[in-house]
Design a protein around this nucleic acid. Structure first.
Length: 437
DNA sequence: GCCC
DNA sequence: CAGTACG
DNA sequence: GGGCCGCTACTG
């Protein structure tokens, strides 16, 4: 390798392949390398060590798809080296060096690996001190990070039918190039900007890398469109934006040109056009139009009420209602909708994590009093380690597994609860099941 | 909206 | 049954 | 052009 090894660890998140597995017809797509993809011009060598075969294959696939050339050997042409973690990288380099014995031994000066200069920041992000910081590497600046969930709330549909490889894990790669056209990214800070997910089940490392919201402007606007389209009942379109956000959030660079986002999944022509408009104008006329449209605004507002969906929101609008106070007069609302209206402001309040924890404890105790041995698990965002929760999810089960459901036949409760000594109402879901999952 |  | 919420 | 999460669960 004659190129200088000015290596700067740079996180890279695989493009999601979420929907491909849902295709009815399993057509084999042959992604041509995108000459404008984010890895265009890179000649990559992948260090297989420590990478599962399946994952290794996906790496290669994505790299090629996004414009890179993947070399089977660490040849002179190689401009970038990807490794699972620093150990693998070092071992590989040691091996290569031995192979070069016959030739001259080049100075190692230029090979200094600058591993994840921001690594130290990752240590202060664990929100759950109770979790062990499991590391697969002795290197404190461990390069491997895994994360299984989206930053946003659950979306099993985005990630179901898994083949065991969720295709969403993140990998940091080391660049050995000085010629990278994307080198500027290296200087960016990868400071975390949002709470971590702690996946206790998988003993996930708390060193998880969370991408910065470099494209916040775009994702914010798209997020508004998600809500608007959902309120309007255009679920499909809404979901498209939702998926696009997930993809954009994981980009390790700030989008400055639509050319940088070619070939990304879930981002087609319209999305690209919108992104282009946002980065040039700082706004999206489509959204502005929505936000000034009284009908859209009203229906969106009504849709925020728990229990009111697109259909009801539209009916209420057509009845002439324009405000929440108008709704309060309407007696056609279902009980749930009335409650949703009554506690409209309450529900919007997020619940501090420690309060959820206390509620959990209370429920554990009550549950034990009612039925000895009952297992009560507080799931949802709490279980995923969020600092605050939008609602509380409780799963009730029993090791006996003797029955599913309750005496009344109802095994699910969507309702409200309140923190002891307060009036503020929170949303809580209870589910009784005999399956511990 | 995206993707066959 | 339609509508809605949930994960 | 047509599918797009669920042999979902629940409410009214």
């Amino acid at each position: 390798m004659h190129c200088t090894l000015r290596t700067s660890a740079r996180p890279f998140i695989e493009a999601t392949n979420e929907e491909s597995n849902r295709r009815k017809m399993a057509s084999k797509k042959k992604p041509k390398g995108d000459p404008h993809g984010m890895f265009a011009g890179m000649v990559v060598f992948l260090v297989p060590r420590g990478v599962q075969a399946r994952r290794f294959h996906i790496w290669k696939e994505r790299l090629v798809q996004m414009g890179a050339v993947v070399e089977e050997r660490l040849s002179k042409r190689v401009t970038h080296v990807f490794a699972m973690h620093s150990d693998a990288l070092h071992q590989q380099l040691d091996t290569e060096q031995d192979c070069l014995k016959s030739g001259e031994l080049l100075s190692e000066d230029g090979y200094a690996l600058k591993l994840d200069p921001q690594g130290e920041h990752t240590h202060e992000k664990s929100l759950d001190p109770g979790l062990t910081n499991q590391s697969t590497s002795s290197d404190p600046q461990q390069l491997i990070n895994k994360k299984r969930k989206l930053s946003t709330e659950d979306t099993k549909n985005v990630n179901h039918e898994g083949d065991g490889d969720d295709g969403r894990e993140k990998v940091i790669f080391s660049s050995t190039s000085t010629a990278s056209s994307h080198g500027k990214v290296d200087s960016l800070s990868y400071r975390n900007t949002r709470p971590q997910h702690i996946d206790a089940e998988n003993e996930m490392s708390s060193l998880s890398y969370c991408p910065p919201d470099l494209n916040k402007k775009i994702t914010e606007i798209f997020g508004k469109l998600v809500n608007i389209y959902r309120a309007l009942g255009e679920d499909r379109r809404s979901f498209s934006y939702y998926k696009a956000i997930a993809v954009i959030e994981k980009l390790p660079f700030k989008i400055e040109s639509a050319d940088q986002i070619n070939n990304l999944p879930s981002i087609g022509k319209s999305m690209k056009d919108h992104i282009q408009e946002i980065i040039t104008n700082g706004k999206l006329s489509k959204l502005e139009h929505f936000e000034t449209d009284e009908k859209v605004r009203t229906i969106s507002l009504f849709g925020e009420v728990w229990g009111i969906g697109p259909s009801t929101a539209l009916k209420l609008y057509e009845k002439g209602h324009r405000s929440l106070d108008d709704l309060r007069i309407d007696d056609s609302l279902t009980n749930a909708q009335k409650l949703g209206l009554k506690y409209f402001d309450d529900i919007r309040q997020r619940i501090p994590r420690h309060e959820v924890q206390e509620m959990d404890c209370i429920l554990q105790k009550v549950g034990e009093d009612v039925l000895s041995g009952v297992v009560i698990i507080c799931g949802g965002s709490y279980r995923r380690g969020k600092a605050s929760c939008g609602d509380i999810d409780i799963i009730i089960t029993h090791p006996d597994g003797k029955r599913q459901g309750t005496d009344s036949g109802v095994d699910t409760y969507f309702g409200f609860c309140t923190y002891p000594g307060r009036e503020l109402r929170h949303r809580i879901d209870l589910k009784v099941t005999n399956v511990t999952s």
